[in-house]
Amino acid sequence: MTAASDIPVLPRGVRLHPDRVRGLTVLLAPERVLTIDATGAAILSRVDGRRSIGEIAADLARAYAAPAEVIAPDVIDFLQDLAEKRMVDLRHG
């Protein structure tokens, strides 16, 4: 189960990439290319291996002037989905 205290990190072999030909941001992983929308990019740009999911949600809440309790479940869902694909590792904080 993914918790707000978990610390997400992009594992080796997974990286955000500016797709200059299509004008998109993509997440590149083994045999996978995922298009990342603006919300996803805002989350992943804050994944640094130090901040917890809760801290990332709080930072997004400040940046977008939205309630953290509304944002946090979306952040958890997004990162949990990537974790199941092994495109994000979650360290239990």
């Binding site: 990439h17 797709d19 030909v21 299509r22 590149l28 045999e31 290319v33």
Partner: peptide, 8 residues
Amino acid sequence: AADLGVLQ
């Protein structure tokens, strides 16, 4: 290939 749009 990269100029054409290849990513992987």
